[in-house]
Write a protein that binds this DNA or RNA. Structure first.
Ligand SMILES: NC(=O)c1ccc[n+]([C@@H]2O[C@H](COP(=O)([O-])OP(=O)(O)OC[C@H]3O[C@@H](n4cnc5c(N)ncnc54)[C@H](O)[C@@H]3O)[C@@H](O)[C@H]2O)c1
Ligand SMILES: NC(=O)c1ccc[n+]([C@@H]2O[C@H](COP(=O)([O-])OP(=O)(O)OC[C@H]3O[C@@H](n4cnc5c(N)ncnc54)[C@H](O)[C@@H]3O)[C@@H](O)[C@H]2O)c1
Lengths: 256, 256
DNA sequence: CGCGATTTGTGCGTGTCTTCACAAGCGCTT
DNA sequence: AAGCGCTTGTGAAGACACGCACAAATCGCG
């Protein structure tokens, strides 16, 4: 991807002197634009209108234009955006011009899936090390990488200049792991464990929690059901009346 | 969890007549509060102050109080919130008083991890069916569930009153799967495939994209590096100068 | 060379979210 | 029974995000 421009051209129409400080909401959308742009590039498009790109990314076109305007003016009025150029710009801003190294900690159920995920490599990242605490797992080879013991984490993170740490251990171990990552100089962490991490200033943590996503969906289900209250969908005993909260709760022990 | 109250008590101090319409931002935080509350309950606390709970959930205490105030007044001034009561309230609002059924589509790398995840069961959900298109996988038994062919998806979803569909197929197949889920009456979808889904009004889609998370972290890394430009941390060749954009990109085909 | 069709970039009104700061309320102690 | 310390619930202000709508810019065509 993105070997546009004839090899011997004068090049560098690009001009991003310093990083503009983008609204956080914009930053969160840029990866989506980037993905859509890569799809377009594959399909042979070399320019795209804000309308088209916005649709492909699932957002409002005005929002998209405003987002892109924060990077500078890389569109052409009456024409649209140059796909290849825009890819370069977004990749530059996101810091994807250098492939970032990732350390994955916790090679269990989820960790295995992540370790084998090619979306890492194809979108700007390289898994450089795997760690686990379980002696059985240590030494195992996955995708050409040998699982190391978590005691080596800080040292290896420093040595290999790990940029991002991914935590896929049980919640109980997550804080300890985070501490070791920080000790190893890692300043960005992606946390899959359902717990809040406390880290020093300057360290960014993002959290992905499957159960949270499901619970948000559950809320909307609940909401939809309570609106359709009269028609009685038949989907659920929909109880908007308070009185059986604990009654409908034969489950127990929602643990750490 | 949540068998508080002596079995023979008069009970029902609870009073949530109808679903208040909560700000979306609040809804997104409630699951986090709920998790923190369950932890507290396990550790034997029966009341908690907004300050404490806010810290446990990683948010500002004023924000937490405002969030909870949307559910009604379930705190006691000078004391705090009753942990058990608050758990019931949040679970009620999130619609977790009935266990929601989940269908998982795409039992590959990631799907296997999800199917084996106990966080589903412990936090209000039940995987009721697994689907895949690969004949090799169909028939496989995972955790007591037999993988069915995706052609059965719509029918089974209807029959089993599936509340939430989880898509863990390649991006190319995701839209088709979403269509079948919708056809089966599913109105909530959690999508792990990196693509936008188009669904009818009334259907909620949430997306989890690992690469997006990493790219957001990458942006902040880039940002931090460009701020520390002079001190030259030694962590990376930090190139704030544009000039090697396409040069560092020998990868290709990020595809549908 | 000029005109019309097209599409970007953005000023501005609107709504949502966050945060501060404090009055009101509760329980405990004296 | 009154006072005191503590914590909730919320009004108001500020910050942020969104989306409309349009002027400015560009291209293609006659
Ligand atoms: N499996 C899923 O689909 C899924 C989905 C969302 C979130 N999660 C979360 O991801 C985390 C991992 O889930 P899982 O299903 O892979 O669990 P798992 O038990 O299968 O794997 C956890 C791994 O972490 C290792 N580990 C434990 N303590 C460690 C430590 N101190 N240092 C390094 N490694 C350590 C274990 O040896 C094990 O290999 C959990 O917090 C879980 O809640 C899992
Ligand atoms: N593996 C990860 O860690 C990870 C992380 C984030 C996102 N994802 C995304 O999740 C999705 C799945 O990833 P994966 O690594 O498990 O891939 P995978 O190839 O291992 O699994 C995909 C599964 O989907 C099945 N499938 C294909 N077409 C189907 C269809 N039409 N209907 C039903 N099933 C179908 C395949 O048979 C296969 O079993 C991908 O979109 C990937 O980008 C994966």
């Amino acid at each position: 991807m993105s070997q546009h421009r004839p090899p011997g051209a004068p090049e560098r129409p690009v001009a991003v002197p310093a990083l503009p400080d983008l609204p956080e909401a914009t930053v969160a959308r840029l990866p989506e634009y980037l993905r859509a742009l890569h799809n377009l590039a594959e399909n042979g498009h070399d320019t795209v209108s804000s309308e088209w790109l916005a649709t492909a990314a699932g957002v409002n076109s005005a929002k998209l234009r405003k987002d892109l305007s924060h990077l500078g003016s890389y569109g052409t009025r009456g024409v649209g955006y140059d796909v290849a150029l825009l890819i370069d710009q977004i990749e530059y801003v996101l810091g994807l011009t250098q492939r970032r190294t990732v350390a994955l900690v916790g090679v269990g159920n989820l960790g295995h899936a992540l370790a084998g995920y090619d979306g890492f490599a194809t979108r700007g990242f390289r898994i450089a090390a795997l760690f686990d605490a379980d002696p059985v797992r240590v030494g195992e080879e996955i995708n050409g990488l040998v699982v190391r013991h978590v005691d080596e984490l800080s040292r290896v993170a420093t040595e290999e200049s790990i940029a991002i740490g991914v935590i896929a251990t049980p919640a109980a171990a997550a804080q300890r792991v985070a501490d070791r990552l920080v000790a190893g100089g890692v300043t960005s962490i992606l946390n899959f464990a359902p717990c809040v991490l406390s880290v020093p200033d300057g360290v960014d943590v993002r959290k992905v929690d499957l159960a949270v996503e499901l619970q948000i969906l559950s809320f909307h289900e609940h909401r939809k059901a309570s609106l359709t209250a009269l028609p009685a969908v038949g989907e659920a005993p929909l109880t908007p009346l308070p009185g059986n909260l604990a009654a409908t709760d034969p489950q127990e022990a929602i643990g750490t």
